[in-house]
Computed example of a mutant assay.
Amino acid sequence: MNFAALVLLALAMSTDAFAAAIGKGAAMQKPRFFQALRIGLLFGVIEAITPLIGWLIGSAASEWVSEWDHWIAFALLLVLGSLMVREGLSSEQEEEKAAPQNQSLLMLALTAVATSIDAMAVGVGLAFIDVNIVQASAMIGIATMVMVTIGVMLGRLLGGIIGKRAEVLGGVVLIGVGATILYEHLA
């Protein structure tokens, strides 16, 4: 996987956390930069750990599926991307409309874990291709930290307008990364 594909993957993995951060930022009263940065750091660390866990799981099974690895990575990314697009296009009522203004660390961590489950599945797929998992995980974590920090700061201004669009874009990018992996292995 080339560097450009890793950058796109990292950005795609951060979009659901970005959408959640906009909601968190909208629920907070005038979030300060250091509050946003702390939330971004929490999300980024969790988002960086989950692909490593997924990669370890996928590596344990890689010798049995080495002939099909590119198809597995493509299928996982296609499914995850499609789910993100569907979620982004759904017309749900506003979530957390009556959310408390100050979020506890535990609630923020649980939100971060919930938004990073897809990164674990991506980590499973990455175990079947030639990729530096430490570099990929670090890029995912950094992108998530930056996107969440920005999301919290923008949340008060933008509310739910951008959140769903970011998730749709992230899903499309995941599908594109999966198609690129498949193309590289079949070409």
Rank of each mutant, 00 (worst) to 15 (best):
E96N: 11
P51K: 08
S90C: 12
I129V: 05
Q93S: 09
I57N: 12
V122A: 04
H185W: 15
I181M: 06
I53Y: 02
D16Q: 02
A99W: 12
S62W: 10
A48G: 08
R156S: 08
A20M: 15
L174S: 13
T50V: 09
V131D: 01
L186Q: 13
A20R: 14
L110C: 08
V65G: 09
A12R: 08
E96H: 02
G25H: 03
I22R: 04
L80V: 11
A121W: 14
M120V: 14
L105W: 15
K30V: 13
M153K: 04
I150D: 06
L105K: 14
A109K: 12
L41A: 15
A48H: 05
A127P: 13
A98R: 14
N132Y: 06
S137Q: 03
G155L: 06
G40N: 04
K164Y: 08
G159R: 11
M28R: 05
A166W: 05
A136K: 04
E47W: 07
Q103M: 12
Q135M: 10
S62H: 14
I129L: 01
A4F: 09
A19G: 01
H185D: 08
W55E: 15
Q135R: 15
Q29Y: 09
L182T: 06
Q101T: 13
P51I: 08
P51Q: 09
V173T: 10
G151P: 00
F74W: 11
G176W: 00
V131R: 02
F34V: 14
L89D: 00
E184I: 08
M13T: 01
A26T: 15
